[in-house]
Computed example of a mutant assay.
Amino acid sequence: MREVTFLRKNADKWKHFESLLSRKNKKNDPDELAELYIELNNDLAYTQANYPGSKTEDYLNQLSLRVHDEIYSSKKEGFSRFISFWKDELPLLYAKKQKELLYSLVLFLLAVSIGVISSANEPSFVRMIMGDSYVNMTISNIEDGDPLAVYKKASEMDMFFAITFNNIRVSFLAFAFGLLTSLGTGLIMLRNGVMVGTFLHFFYKYDLLADAMLVIFIHGTLELSAIVIAGAAGMVLGNGVLFPGTYSRKDAFIRSAKEGLKMVIGLVPIFIAAGFLESFVTRYTGMPLWLSLFVIISSLFIIVYYFSIYPIKLKAKHAAS
């Protein structure tokens, strides 16, 4: 390849690298810097082999050194790294994945609709999805005047650990099934959404839907949101396998796996908060209406703000800096 052709082919990429290094607010993603350093070294090695002593070699050598210095100057461990992860790195990643979050939400709501419609048209569907023992127990609780007594039976701490572990398990399954492409994640989302729709229709049939939602969504707002976000992480993983773009399939897979795993790690506080609410708060089924609404609306606001509004605002701020 002629040197001028090589320059034209890579000029835009190198300019992008320079812009990252010259930003006023230098809070670059360490993973992105590492990938940048690898690419530059590959270009430099090619230049040294084909255009030794050229200005291109000198330019790439200097640029590579700048990236190297940036990587090692940004390796600040400890509390500041922890803060920057939650304040900048993770929200910027979510800003890039708004499309996947939307697709995951639409798929989940579609699955909920399937659960509702199936339950409405086939009375035995609820037992097939939720099991005879749960349905019989809930019917018995309804007859006793306490339809959501199931949340009061176990001790708070036992419930907290069991529920938190289950939420983590379901979310990691939704992510991990992305290894089977996005269809794998879609199956997990479909299963959970149908279950939710069936559950809601079951209480609707007994004219208890509003009462049930005011109790269940105290923890369910966070819990279901975590499933949707984990589904988006699975889609990121699956799309990396299916659509590598300009990367090799292996590099695209590694990149998408890192991004998806970070998205799931971002759900850890949600797992803990949802487990706490379900174990220690949801059991008080007779709490005032205003208090239930306060918890539900506050939870929804936190989810929408941190995973959508704040990331978009932060991305715009970084683009303008």
Results as ranks from 00 to 15, higher is better:
G53C: 09
E57N: 07
F108L: 00
N61L: 07
I139D: 09
I71D: 10
V126L: 01
S119T: 12
E156R: 10
L93Q: 13
F82P: 04
D144K: 15
G131W: 05
A120M: 07
Y103S: 02
N121K: 09
I129N: 05
V150A: 11
A95I: 06
W86P: 04
S140L: 06
E156K: 11
A120S: 12
K99E: 07
A149C: 03
L65V: 00
S73P: 06
D69N: 10
E70P: 09
S104D: 04
V67W: 09
E156H: 07
L102I: 05
A111R: 01
K87W: 00
K96F: 02
M128T: 14
S133W: 04
D158I: 08
M128A: 07
S84H: 04
T138I: 07
S155Q: 13
S118R: 05
I83R: 04
P52E: 15
D88W: 14
A95R: 06
S64P: 12
V116D: 03
I83L: 13
Y103H: 11
W86V: 08
F108E: 05
I139F: 03
Y151H: 13
V135W: 12
E100L: 06
L63K: 11
N136S: 15
S155N: 14
S73T: 15
L92I: 01
Y51M: 05
A95M: 07
N136Y: 11
E77K: 10
K96E: 15
F108I: 00
I129C: 04
D69I: 06
V67G: 00
G53K: 08
D58E: 15
Q62W: 02
L65I: 00
E100F: 08
M128L: 11
L65W: 02
L63S: 03
N121C: 07
Y59Q: 10
M157D: 11
